[in-house]
């Protein structure tokens, strides 16, 4: 029964993504008509002549990689958010709130400022550095919030705010200290997929896949943990150790994605909740579906970022915050009522 529902939603999401990708290829300031886009798509696939170079370049080298990055980043954040929410049993947990994004961004920026220019790291360096930073941010928030099983929402939020403010301050000072890179601050603090080198995704994709595979493999234990630590212990799950493993695996995906896109909030918060409503709380289903739904969500957030203001791009983090913050407020209110 649950399996059938999962396949159904998987199919719906997959189809939606396919359609959305095609629509997204049509969106952009260069003003290509649908027919032009198709011509450009076939032009490179078949090597047919007669298609202007610039049309092929815009569709294949600018829009398509960007669509891919949006899907990848959205999927990473949503999967991480689903895992965090499950393991911490806290509906407000997500990479942004937990300080993972801020920590990852700081580490990535520091890496780029102090060694990236020398090409020290290659494809892997920045995502892995971001991973280390993300774990540090997470550890700080959890430590500050008191790692106690059912950590209270307020405590977690406050700890998150404190750690984020601190990391944000360090990040800003870092960027100011290397002032000619100042415009980058916006990109990192509010997130953006504009003008990002698609090659960055090469380091992020494996991180995402490893993270997803591990989390799905541990999905049963995650399910048990959602019941509470005591229950889990009765059922023979060593919560303490498992908890860390899952947190680390989730942080891998979340942090690596930050290296591509900067800090994008609320994706990891909103998406798993919606998927849970649609397909139920079983993590074996929740995690893969969250990946699809997260990709879809961020793809459209990015389309909005690209198209909302003609001639200019909005940071994508502003779009997701615009949608996600009210949802967060709703969750906060609801969780306040039930307690």
């Amino acid at each position: 029964m649950a399996g059938k529902r999962a396949w159904l939603w998987g199919g719906v999401l997959g189809l939606s993504i396919a359609v959305s990708v095609l629509i997204s290829l049509r969106i952009g300031p260069a003003g290509l008509e649908t027919a032009d886009v198709w011509r450009a798509v076939w032009g490179r696939l078949t090597g047919a002549g007669g298609v202007p170079d610039w049309e092929v370049a815009v569709v294949w080298d600018l829009r398509l990689p960007r669509v891919g990055m949006a899907l990848l980043v959205g999927a990473s954040l949503a999967v991480a958010g689903a895992a965090y929410q499950g393991v911490l049993r806290n509906p407000l947990a997500d990479p942004f709130i937990l300080g993972v994004s801020s920590g990852a961004a700081l580490a990535a920026v520091a890496g780029m400022l102090f060694g990236g220019r020398a090409g020290l790291y290659g494809v892997w360096g920045i995502p892995l550095l971001a991973f280390a930073g993300g774990l540090a941010g997470l550890a700080a928030v959890l430590r500050l919030g008191g790692m106690a099983g059912g950590m209270r929402n307020e405590t977690l939020l406050l700890a998150g705010v404190v750690v984020q403010s601190f990391l944000g301050a360090v990040l800003t000072v870092l960027m100011l200290a290397s002032a000619e890179r100042l415009p980058g601050v916006m990109m990192w603090l509010m997130g953006s997929l504009a003008n990002r080198d698609p090659a960055l995704a090469a380091g992020v994709l494996p991180c995402f896949l490893v993270s997803l595979a591990l989390l799905v493999a541990w999905a049963r234990e995650l399910n048990v943990m959602t019941l509470g630590e005591d229950q889990a212990a009765y059922l023979g799950v060593d919560v303490g150790k498992r908890k860390w493993k899952i947190l680390v695996a989730a942080s891998l995906a979340a942090s690596a994605s930050v290296a591509v896109s900067g800090i994008i909030g609320f994706v990891g918060l909103v998406v798993p909740h919606i998927v849970r409503l649609l397909a139920g709380p079983d993590h074996r289903i929740l995690l893969p579906l969250s990946a699809l739904a997260g990709g879809l969500f961020l793809l459209w957030a990015d389309n909005a970022a690209r198209a909302a203001v003609p001639g200019q791009e909005i940071p994508i983090g502003a779009v997701t915050a615009f949608l996600g913050a009210p949802f967060f407020a709703y969750l906060l209110r609801r969780s306040g009522r039930t307690r």
């Binding site: 952009g28 260069a30 610039w54 815009v58 000619e180 200019q312 791009e313």
Partner: peptide
Amino acid sequence: KPINAEKVIRSNPQVIVLTYGYY
């Protein structure tokens, strides 16, 4: 203003001048 890469490619400039070579 920031310009979109799509627009640059579409405009097909014959000369590109960069001013940030020093950093």
